[in-house]
């Protein structure tokens, strides 16, 4: 079986989230491959490969750091195309938070569908497989003609809620109509009540009036969403919940993008805690915001990589979170 020998997991890490890559590598028991990516003084990105990827099963881990999305994306594309030129057997792009996921439809005239563009770019560069976590809209998978594994943070969240609260005390709240499905799924699993906040959004990143549908009186209201960007929505929703008699309000969010004044907004809010996964590099935000808690998602991603490599089913991970 000497032919099989060469085909091993080769983990390549981009610059955006070395911490996550290290955790995944440690869990898989492999070393991160010797590569460097950096920028020339003219700002072009250069990627140096220091070990062979020929006939290997390459997994490239690149999240997108807040504020540096394009830089990270371009670096990822260069890494993928470098591995393809270097005869890798299969290239899997592991993108915990998919960039431009919110620009997924032509919501007005001549608006770009940037998510589709990113999907096409990844395939053009040579990605054979995509692994991501909690896509903003699962339809984005349809932009690809290569397999996409969309992992869920839900099992990790369920465990967090079970460990920290009595489920009969909780109400799961979706901060907008679009996230209702995500929230009801958690509510069903925990067998708790569910509520929904309806909001009007005049422009992106600006929040309008909010109306609560459902009852949260004397309960712990748990807001569930896929991403927290400027946190305007979450904080306003929390205020609405508090007004409606919630005992405490916390939020469970997969991608903590936390851009702009998010940290200040959070610190001044009635939210008791914001629980995020580490799909996005958080930098010093944990120190700056005492309300921020982080769930480590690397076991789920590592297990998905192991299963993908061994050709096992990944669907177990949709309902279970490895410890």
């Amino acid at each position: 079986m000497s032919g099989e020998m060469a085909n091993e997991i080769k983990l390549i890490s981009g610059r955006s989230h070395p911490d996550l890559s290290d955790k995944i590598a440690k869990r898989l028991g492999v070393e991160v491959a010797r590569t460097i990516s950096l920028n020339y003084s003219n700002q072009e990105t250069s990627f140096t490969v220091g070990e062979s990827v020929r006939d290997e099963d390459v997994f490239i881990i690149q999240s997108t750091a807040t504020g540096n999305v394009n830089e990270g994306l371009m670096e990822l594309l260069i890494m993928i195309s470098a591995c393809r030129t270097a005869s890798a057997r299969r290239i899997t792009a592991v993108i915990p938070n998919f960039p431009y996921a919110r620009q997924d439809k032509k919501d007005k005239s001549r608006a770009p569908i940037s998510a589709r563009l990113v999907a096409n770019m990844l395939q053009t560069a040579g990605a054979n497989h995509i692994v991501t976590v909690d896509l903003h809209a699962s339809q984005i998978q349809g932009f690809f003609s290569v397999p996409v594994d969309n992992l869920y943070a839900e099992p990790s969240f369920l465990r967090y809620i079970r460990e920290n609260f009595k489920s009969e005390d909780c109400v799961i709240v979706s901060p907008d109509a679009g996230g209702a499905k995500r929230a009801t799924s958690i509510a069903d699993h925990l067998n708790t009540a569910f509520a929904l906040i309806h909001k009007e959004r005049p422009r992106p990143n600006v929040v309008g009036r909010m109306v609560l549908v459902g009852n949260v009186e004397d309960k712990v209201a748990i807001l569930v969403d896929d991403m927290a960007d400027t946190c305007g929505t979450l904080v306003k929703a929390a205020a609405v919940l508090k007004e409606n008699g919630a005992k405490a309000v916390l939020a469970l969010v997969t991608h903590g993008i936390l851009s702009g004044n998010a940290i200040e907004t959070l610190n001044g809010s009635v939210l008791e805690a914001l629980v995020v996964t580490n799909t996005v590099p958080l930098g010093d935000k944990v120190e700056r915001c005492p309300k921020l808690r982080v769930i480590d998602i690397s076991p789920t991603i590592a297990e998905a990589i192991r299963r993908t490599h061994n050709g096992e089913s990944v669907s177990y991970l949709f309902t279970h979170a490895p410890v």
Binding site: V69, R110, P204, G260
Partner: peptide, 15 residues
């Protein structure tokens, strides 16, 4: 750019 770092592009004239 959006505050998250993603590019925001809107073309306002018909093409």
């Amino acid at each position: 750019k959006f505050s998250s770092g993603e590019s925001r592009c809107e073309i306002q004239d018909s093409v």
